[in-house]
Each structure stands twice: as structure tokens, then as C-alpha cells.
Design a protein around this nucleic acid. Structure first.
Lengths: 352, 352
DNA sequence: CTGTTAGCGCTTTCAA
DNA sequence: TTGAAAGCGCTAACAG
């Protein structure tokens, strides 16, 4: 017996410096070797019931709690945690995706741990790095930076990387998105069918992939119906009630012939409803993403199931874990129109 | 040089079995000792700039990624992660509390990792255990089980345990709640002032502490105003649109003189609005917890700031970490009425 | 079925 | 300022 542990062994024999019982202490109390104690605690069937019993009792007495740092380090350095990096927990869409994924992972005894970037591209790298240093078994991410090549090394090492909602940039990785373009096309067609010919768009930040996809879908929709795409009918706004409100008013005044508006995400939709419900009630309106009170408010939306997105994300993650060498998947969850009234009513008189 | 590492050192000298570069590999490439490499990577000021440079380069070349399992194990066995256990990510209240806490922790370079119990008391223990085995530095929890004595050992070992929204049962621990009773009293007073004398309540599960506190506040409010508490005016419903709808209808038909209703949480409120908006528009109504479209819908609520709850929770966590021996704190975040119309309108004719 | 032994990757004395 | 050596707590390999 050499070294640091020499100074224990007298009065307070049994605990490590932190005061926490180690598996060794449990073993000693149970009168078995640490290896046996470890096996008993891990429900190894080769352990005699009597032995297991003794060990479990000892563990209980000492309030033993396994140290998964040591455990995971010893057994290959990979944990049972799946990381999920998102911008913002308060965004209900993100939260629902997480919930969907979590459920699938839990069935496999994998824990989803969520960390947020706060929408800041710099902290994004830090959060991702921390997750990887914690040796998560896979990493799901909704990232907003525009270059993910910094993950190339990690990919080569075989860490499953799954991009959610937005595809990776400069990196080959699995990816799950929703069908943004078709969703927007459907919205346009729906309004067109109701008689609207000048359809404005209040969109999120231009730099976001989802935004540009949705705008592209809008363009395709308009053009396929014989209309002309006018970029002036599209206003971008960051997420602030003021900016969104201003964008809406600008759009209205600049285009008196405009009879309908599409909002490209649920935060914009809700903000617009809060501030300009009466205007919206007098025009065609469709929001991208469903939201809780949309039914009551009779707001038609482009909908998809975020829980499904989460479940699918978890599914491809599990596939990737099982088969690290398969080529990356790219899944697209379909979108559909939910008609509730606001997107189906005809334009009011043009001379409004 | 003894043992397992002997068989490396020839052709593919540099990597561990996982293919991942270790600090040792970085050190070798940089021509320094592992200890020095470690110091350089940790920004130890005692390292020569030139040496640091070499090490960082080597780390870059090898795409080195620190293993925090090993790191944290070696240096005392505690991580920089703070655990947060909640029922359900999709509950916006929970999400907002998490967001508030996360922000405070991030400033201290602590990461909040969130895991959910799915509202199941059994999986609750498992999730808590997993978090503790991961050696989180502190554990924040919204638990629904009714006995937390299983955490007593952990408490004695000094792990900061912080109960959010609901106090611990059979355990001394820090706790942050909102002022449920006063919130309910305010709601009652508000409706009373508008002329309502028979006020019903649609409440969450009876077993929940928050529910019983809110009912108690309701009772106090009624009695302090000279009314009589009638438990028949209180209906409990689990979270399903059907059950909540049924409870509401039952309450209405059983009490024709009832002119106002209070909902005890935001999920019930939203569900009621979705299904019975027209009834609600003809009575006094106040919801506990604010929600996004409450302003538009002119729904008066008992409000408090969930972000504040999160921030406060984080604050007492940091205090507890700094001072493990202080006696437990119990913080109560105040609640207030936000008047938007539904809680201020007078009763319609009693013979409705 | 159980014990012995070694070592996961890192940091931290201690000595130079 | 750097290096050598030890060991955090655990489990896997190998004997017995």
C-alpha cells in the first residue's frame, strides 16, 4: 500500500477525500473485492444473489453513488448522454422537438441533455465544444453559424452529428429539416385560390437558411401561379415586437393593393396578432408553424409536427450510432396547410 | 514503459485506441511532457509563450479535444455542469425558468443541463440519480413525487439541492416558489370587487402542492371578504382537453348562480379558451400564470416572471455552492394581477 | 463465481 | 519553467 491512501486507514477509514463512499469502500464493508462490488452494482448475472445482497446493503449503508465520470472513462470514454444544442429553450418549437427526441432516447436508456447558445454564434462553438468534451454519444444541433467545418475533425472521429432544422454548412452530416419550400408554396396557393393576388411576407432574419428557403418557396408558388415575384413584398425583421410591427406597417402602406400576408414563423405570427389583429382580420393571413391558440383565433397555418421532427431526429441518431460508416441521411418532414379561416377568406374590396 | 501502451509506438504511433488524440499525443508532437501540455492547454501563466504555442499547434494538428471525464475525475470529481430536472420541456413555464437560470449560470461558466422526467415519479428518481452520478455541481429540480428523503444522503454530502416551484418533502433544502396563496387571493378580490360573489375554480391535480396552495389562497380570499368557501365550487382536472372541458361544464351546470371562474394554471386557461371562449366571454375570468396571447384575448391573469424565478433559483444555487453550510433558503417570488378586462367586468344578470 | 491487476486520460504534487 | 510519477474511481481482462 503505497502513496496517498496511506494516511487513511485509521480512525475514519472508509471514505475518500470528498467524503463520498467509493466502490472500494462498499466492497470492503461487504467483504468482497471491488471488482465483485462493481459487478453486483451493475447487475452482472454471474454474481451470487447472496453476494449481490451484501453489496447492495453496504452500498445503501454508505449511501454509495456511482461516479459515472470514472465509470465512463474506464469503459471506453463514451457516455450515455446525447447532447442537444439549441438557441433558446423558450422557443416552443425547439422545446417540442427536444421533447420528441427525448422520448425516443429514453426508451434506449440514453439521456438527452440540452444546452443553449442564446442565439450567439460565438457561444455556440463553446457550447458544442463543452458537449464534445463531455463525450456525449451523439450531438444534435440547431446552429445558426454559417460554417460548421470546425466539426470536421469530430466527424472523422465518428461522433454522430445531427443537424436539426437547418443543414450543416461545409460539413457532411445527417440532417433533418422540414419542407419549408412546399409549405410556403401551399400557403401561397391557398391564398391565391381565395382570390388574393398581392401577397406580402413578414419574414425572419435574412441570413437564416429557413428564412431563405421559405422565401424561395414563396417565389416558386407565386411564379407557378402566373404571378410575378416582387422582393419588395418581403420584409425581414429580427425578433422584436417593434421591428415586426414596423415591418408590417411599412408593408401595408407601401402596398395598398396588398390583400394578404404570410408570416414565416410562429414568433412573428404571435407578435403580429398581438399588435395588429384588427388589420389581419381584414386580410388573408397564413402563419408558418402552428401555435396553441391558432384554433380559437381562426388562423390558418402551415403546420408540421415538431414532435415528429424530434422523433425522426432521434431515429436517425440511433441509426448513425449503430452504423457509423453509413452515408449521411437527409430527412425532410412534410408540411401541410391547416385551414381555419384566415387563409381562406377572399380579399376585401381593393379600394380599402 | 510497461504494459498496454507498449504495442503502440511503431507505425501509427500517436493515437489512443479510440482514434482520438490524447494529451500525451499532443505533448509528444510538441516535444514536451504531458504535464506541460496540460498546463499550456489550461492557460497556465507559468508556461513559456513559445511552449504554449507549440502545444496549441500540436493540439490543432491532432484535432485534440480534452476529455472532461478524465479531467474532472482527476481534479476532484466535480464538473461544471448544473443539473435541472423538470417534468416536461414543452411546458413554457418550465422552459422560461430554465432560460432564466441558464443565463445566470453561463456568466459563471457553468452549463445548465436539462433532463426531463416525463411527469412520472419513477423515472424522476432515475433521472435524478443519473444527474448525481454525472457529478453535477448542483441540482435544481421541479419534482412531483411526495417524498424526497431519498436525497438525504446527497444533501449530507454537500451537493447543493434546489427545489423549484414546489418545496421539498422530508428533506431540508433550498427552495424557491411563487406566492401562490397571495396570487389567488388577489384574483378573488379582483373578481369580488367587480361584483362577483359565486366564483368557481378549475384546478389542476389535487395532489400537487401548487394546486393545494392556490386553493387555500382562494379559500382565504373568499373568507376574508365575508364569503363562504364551498369546496363544490372547485373542480380538479388532469391535463386533458376533455377532462378540463367536462369539469368546466359540470361546474357551470351545477352552479347556475356562478358568475366567475378562476383557472389555476396556464394549461387549463388555454384549454378552456380553446373550447369555451364564448362562455368565458360572458363571465368574470382570471387565469393563474400569464401566457403569450393573453393581451390580445383580454384575459386578466395572476402573473409572475418565470425568468425571475429562474434567475433567483440560479442565485441561491450559487450562494449554496459558495457556502455549503449555510442554512437552507426559502424564497418566494411575488405574484400580481394583470388587469386586461376579463377579470374586471361585472356579472351579467343573475338569471342568465 | 470471485479476486488480482492494470489502466482509461488527465492533472497535480514534488523535485529538478 | 518543465518533467516524472502517481492516482482520481472505476471496470475489463485474466486467473483462479
Amino acid at each position: 500500500m503505497i502513496g496517498a491512501r496511506l494516511n487513511r486507514g485509521f480512525a475514519m477509514a472508509k471514505h475518500s477525500s470528498s467524503g463520498r463512499a467509493r466502490i472500494q469502500d462498499v466492497a470492503a464493508l461487504a467483504g468482497v473485492s471491488p471488482a465483485t462490488a462493481s459487478r453486483a452494482l451493475a447487475d452482472d448475472p454471474k454474481v451470487t444473489p447472496a453476494t449481490r445482497q451484501k453489496v447492495l446493503e453496504a452500498a445503501g449503508t454508505l449511501r454509495f453513488r456511482r461516479n459515472s465520470l470514472a465509470r465512463d472513462l474506464r469503459s471506453g470514454g463514451v457516455t450515455t448522454a446525447i447532447g442537444y444544442v439549441i438557441e433558446d429553450l423558450m422557443n416552443p418549437w425547439h422545446a417540442q422537438v427536444a421533447a420528441g427526441a427525448e422520448k425516443v432516447f429514453r426508451e434506449k436508456n440514453l439521456e438527452l441533455i440540452v444546452a443553449t447558445t442564446g442565439g450567439d454564434a460565438r457561444s455556440e462553438q463553446l457550447v458544442v465544444k463543452t458537449m464534445l468534451e463531455r463525450r456525449v454519444q451523439a450531438l444534435l444541433m440547431i446552429l445558426l453559424s454559417d460554417d460548421h467545418s470546425y466539426l470536421e475533425g469530430e466527424r472523422q472521429l465518428g461522433t454522430p452529428l445531427i443537424f436539426v432544422d437547418r443543414p450543416p454548412v461545409n460539413l457532411m452530416a445527417d440532417c433533418i429539416t422540414i419542407d419549408n419550400r412546399n409549405g410556403m408554396r401551399l400557403a401561397v396557393e391557398n391564398l391565391w385560390k381565395a382570390g388574393h393576388r398581392t401577397i406580402g411576407v413578414i419574414a425572419g432574419p435574412e441570413s437564416l437558411w429557413t428564412t431563405s428557403e421559405r422565401i424561395e418557396g414563396y417565389r416558386q408558388g407565386i411564379e407557378s401561379l402566373g404571378g410575378r415575384f416582387d422582393h419588395k413584398l418581403v420584409r425581414h425583421a429580427r425578433y422584436s415586437a417593434e421591428l415586426i410591427g414596423t415591418a408590417f406597417i411599412d408593408l401595408m402602406t407601401a402596398h395598398p393593393t396588398m390583400t394578404a400576408v404570410i408570416s414565416t414563423n410562429n414568433r412573428i405570427t404571435v407578435t403580429l396578432l398581438n399588435s395588429h389583429k384588427s388589420d389581419i382580420d381584414r386580410m388573408g393571413f397564413i402563419g408558418f408553424d402552428d401555435f396553441e391558440l391558432a384554433g380559437l383565433l381562426k388562423i390558418s397555418v402551415v403546420s408540421h409536427n415538431p414532435l415528429d421532427v424530434g422523433r425522426e431526429a432521434a431515429r436517425i441518431t440511433l441509426e448513425r450510432i449503430a452504423n457509423p460508416l453509413a452515408s449521411p441521411q437527409r430527412i425532410e418532414v412534410s408540411t401541410e396547410i391547416v385551414e381555419r379561416g384566415s387563409g381562406e377568406r377572399p380579399p376585401e374590396r381593393m379600394d380599402r
